[in-house]
Design a protein around this nucleic acid. Structure first.
Lengths: 260, 260
DNA sequence: TCTTATTTGTTCGTATGTATT
DNA sequence: GAATACATACGAACAAATAAG
């Protein structure tokens, strides 16, 4: 560091780090309320006696952590972050599915948080990508039904889910329709004799792809959580692979099980 | 951008982004093998006709994604990333626990990946922090036994776990000893009449704290996964809270359950 | 142990591009 | 169109860690 002062503290850390910590603390302490804006970069620069570059870096850190959202010609808005919950077990239980008015797990979860769910579904038939084929025990290129869902809470995009079902199972059935009817997909599987008995999920955190970043309105370097959800029949046959993608900073995944 | 050229592609993106994508691709394609080093920043700068600042930013992005690890006066090393798996269910099953030689879930999981596990445990008694008290159904400040474990795979730090047990249960028992004996903690709970019957876990991704960043050797802005693991008795009493923290980029969490 | 070259970390100043108001 | 605000880029400098001698 060339200069002797900077921000306030002594300096075991780089200035932009100190500033980031300072702003983070202020946000968490409520000094900058959710929805409000941070002072502009030039403003912060003069206020703390640092260059705009330092401020920009500090803000960049807050962005990647999901604390603020930046709009080009406007400024940095403090995020309103009511953490979204996803229940990895009850989400697929009878009660949640057929609850009055609920059209599936996502709906009931979002409603439980006092938010208004909405989702768009597109169905198509494609050759199975390698990873999908492997998960479903198919040969690469075998036909699968792809159900793409984009989900929103209070109009804000919060989740993408790609569901793959072997064409052999879904073809010509309601599984290949946009509207899956009462009880959702799981009930349809049961009707067709493919009752889902066992579920496996793999959770990982990775960088967001460009399209995910755009849809989920993610800041640069904000990671996503990717969940590979596979449903198996009693005969140990995988009948559905659903890949869920959500912003890592705003979701909490809940699991529960008995130790048998 | 002031300059007309830069990197190679046209330019729908900022240069440091293009460069980051380019390097990321090269790494994933194996052009820079795990354990090898990237060219130096000045080298990359001249090679791609950009300033060092651009290179530095690009590398910074790779770091936060866990692709490379940077050592100050040396350079950027490509990470060896054998993804570590954590099985949220079997991890607490009889078989895994009492498997020959295994001293707990972590041991058997790491061994299953062909790595050598090691861990250090420190036990202490403290007043329960608010969040812990709430999770365990205690009053704030009630005494709890804290078991802090630092875990390594092939000597590399990979996980921190803080386990909290009500003093009332653990006090004076082997639960408050560093060595919990055959079968680990769970077996001891059973011996004491607090058999763990139900498990709940909450998973979230958050920025790493300073100490976590140091211990887990995380790069700046690399997030961690925090798992709150609560064990309940048949009487629905919470008897243990374990908080696990791992690098988000190198772990995969596996779950499995029956749809009952 | 001290010195020097190398490499990354960080900051400043300046300039230009782009989006919003 | 003008003003404001963020995004990037370049160049220059110095600090700090590492490696080689």
């Amino acid at each position: 560091m060339r200069n002797g002062d900077g921000v306030t503290m002594e300096e075991p850390q780089a200035r932009y780090r100190q500033l980031a910590a300072l702003l983070r603390g202020a946000i968490e302490a409520g000094e900058y309320a959710p929805g409000s804006m941070l002072p502009s970069e030039p403003e912060l620069a003069t206020r703390y006696g640092v260059s705009r570059d330092v401020v920009n870096r500090a803000v960049r850190s807050l962005r990647s952590q999901g604390l603020v959202r930046v709009i080009r010609g406007r400024g940095a808005v403090v995020r309103e972050i009511p953490p979204l919950h996803r229940n990895g077990v009850a989400a697929y239980q009878q009660a949640a599915r057929e609850h009055a008015g609920a059209h599936g797990a996502f709906d009931s979860e979002i409603r439980a948080l006092g938010l208004e769910p909405r989702s768009e579904t597109e169905v198509s038939a494609i050759p199975a990508p390698p990873a999908v084929a492997e998960a479903l025990g198919l040969a690469g290129g075998d036909p699968v039904i792809l159900r793409m869902r984009r989900m929103y809470a209070n109009g804000v995009p919060v989740q993408i889910a790609l569901s793959y079902i072997p064409q052999e199972i879904a073809g010509g059935t309601q599984l290949a329709e946009a509207d899956t009817g009462p009880g959702g997909l799981i009930s349809r599987f049961r009707d067709l004799g493919y009752e889902q008995e066992r579920i496996t999920e793999s959770v990982r955190v990775r960088p967001a792809a460009a399209d995910e970043q755009a849809f989920l309105r993610l800041e640069d370097d904000q990671p996503v959580i990717e969940i590979w959800h596979t449903a198996w029949t009693a005969a140990a046959r995988p009948v559905e692979l659903a890949v869920h993608v959500v912003a890592a900073s705003q979701w909490v995944l809940d699991y529960e099980w008995l130790t048998s």
